[in-house]
Design a protein around this nucleic acid. Structure first.
Length: 494
RNA sequence: GUCCCCAUCGUCUAGUCUGGUCCAGGACACCAGCCUUUCACGCUGGCGACAGGGGUUCGAAUCCCCUUGGGGACGCCA
């Protein structure tokens, strides 16, 4: 099939999958899926110094968690070194590349000098027109050489029609001869990438705008190798609030996909959010099911300008971009309860507070607990932290609740056990009856109903907020309510 | 230094190609009110942007030019 849609996600395994990479993978995946095409995972591990096994696994784990599936691969670039070398040799044989004997040290020095002097930085062409004799002499002297691509001396420009940016052109004379094969015989990214894309019959290349200028040089390679040029779409970069490129090195875990997995985020919420960073459907929709997203997605609607990942360090209220939190909460609060139950089970298990009964005879209770509490939760983590009191007695007390609703009234020390007795005496432990009991109690003591009610919330759930307290009474159950009220003395001890 | 790209509320964005329906719409965040004897949800309202300057035009966020700002590339990294 000549017109088959084939895309690839080619991460270099030099660290975990970060949100920028995930975004690239997502857009490639969306386009492939939308057009019944193929997505190929290709690990670009030619940088032996920095590539690690762990990052390969980490990247695949990240993709799997997100639900991004691929049809071919993972292929490993280093398995095709032969192809890359053959291509380099072909370019040398056809006069489209030449051997360059300039040493790295000399080149580095020249580049640094040019940069320092604020002068043009480019290869000066020292070896571009060496005679066969000169080449033979250098080789006889044992001087190692790299292979450099010979940029054609043509007027005009090389260019392409980018699906996102429009027409991109660069004059031939602005492009300096670039190295395609190292002196140790190992081919470099620019070449490998093109050779692999040709072999994998890639039809669309969707990548970050940091590759924009590479594309012109790669088009030269496609032409020199006599291969058709794929469609290119350069997506905007993800920047931090200071407009610096998001990177593993400077931002750490907060940009790692696994961080979101470990902090109770939902894979689809991540995908939804990441898509919105640099793309929009053109209408006011922001929440998309998979089908809706596939329907709405086009390369042309990807934005041209870079997007800021709005993460502010040291903001306790927002552990990450507020919009991501909001989207995650949306899915958490609206998703199918049974599906949510599976995820919360994992969370409770890892917190060590899962009980088999939640999946058995208490399943109905478990599901209702989730439904009651998810209204004010943002991540799965909240079920084992804020919502811990539903599942375990060793919950912590929110300091604010302790101060405002418990220790504020010394008499609560006596009142709460008394209230426990009232509750214990109830036959029908319903929301209505517990409400009546609590209100009657307040009336008898001539205190505001809020005092015993809010104190109960604190002592029973550890929280200052939560669902209607009477529903909490009823749902927590008589035994737990009575016990925790009776044992509330411990909260008064300093 | 050279080349390339970009530029609308704090953030993500709609609108730009095909000038008028935009004294610029939505979302998140923020603020206020309602609801709720809690908190949240929800609802209502508010705050808040066309980077600046020229030009073209009856009319410009939209077209052109300049300036400024931001980003990227210029590697025997990918």
């Amino acid at each position: 099939m000549a017109n088959e849609v084939r895309l690839r996600f080619p991460p270099s395994p030099t660290g975990y999958l970060h949100i920028g990479g995930a975004r690239t993978a997502i857009l490639n995946w969306l386009y492939a899926r939308k057009h019944n095409g193929k997505l190929i995972l290709r690990i670009e591990d030619t940088d032996a110094e920095r590539s690690t096994e762990a990052s390969i696994q980490g990247i695949m784990d990240g993709l799997n968690w997100l639900g991004i599936d691929w049809d071919e691969g993972p292929y490993f670039q280093t398995d095709f070194t032969g192809d890359h070398q053959a291509a380099g040799q072909k370019l040398l044989d056809t006069g489209k590349a030449y051997k360059c004997f300039c040493t790295k040290e000399v080149l580095d020095a020249k580049r640094q000098a040019a940069l320092a002097a604020k002068q043009e930085v480019r290869y000066d062409g020292t070896c571009r027109n060496l005679s066969p004799e000169e080449i033979a002499d250098q080789e006889a002297a044992g001087i190692p050489s790299v292979l450099r691509f010979k940029v054609p001396e043509r007027d005009g420009s090389v260019g392409y029609d980018d699906k996102v940016l429009g027409r991109i052109e660069q004059k031939y004379c602005e492009i300096s001869d670039f190295v395609i094969v190292r002196s140790n015989g190992k081919p470099l990214y620019l070449l490998c990438n093109v050779v692999d894309d040709i072999r994998d019959r890639i039809s669309h290349v969707v990548r970050g705008q940091d590759h924009k200028d590479n594309t012109n040089r790669q088009i030269l390679l496609y032409e020199a190798l006599g291969a058709p040029v794929p469609v290119f779409a350069h997506m905007p970069l993800t920047l931090d609030t200071k407009k610096a490129k998001i990177s593993k090195r400077s931002h750490g875990e907060i940009v790692a996909v696994h961080w979101y997995r470990d902090h109770g985020f939902l894979p689809w919420a991540m995908i939804n959010f990441l898509c919105l960073l640099g793309w929009s459907a053109g209408d006011d929709r922001e929440i998309f099911s998979k089908d809706e997203l596939l329907e709405a997605f086009t390369l042309e609607r990807i934005n041209k300008s870079n997007a800021v990942f709005n993460y502010k360090k040291d903001d306790p209220k927002f552990i990450t971009d507020p919009k991501l939190l909001n989207i995650n909460a949306h899915y958490l609060r609206t998703m199918d309860l049974e599906e949510l139950a599976v995820l919360v089970k994992k969370e409770l298990e890892s917190a060590g507070i899962w009980q088999a009964a939640y999946g058995g005879e208490r399943k109905g209770w478990f599901l209702k607990t989730l439904d009651m509490s998810r209204e004010r939760f943002y991540t799965l983590k909240d079920f084992s932290t804020e919502g811990r009191a539903w599942f375990a007695d060793d919950f912590a007390m929110c300091p604010k609740a302790l101060k405002k609703n418990v220790r504020k009234h010394d008499q609560l020390r006596e009142w709460l056990p008394e209230l426990a007795d009232r509750m214990a005496a109830l036959d029908d432990f319903s929301a209505d009856e517990t409400e009546k009991a609590a209100r009657d109690f307040a009336e008898e003591k001539d205190i505001k109903p809020g005092i015993p009610i809010n104190a109960s919330r604190a002592v029973l759930t550890g929280q200052i907020k939560g669902p209607s307290m009477f529903e909490v009474f009823a749902h927590l159950g008589k035994e737990t309510v009575v016990r925790r009220l009776r044992e509330s003395g411990r909260w008064f001890e300093k």
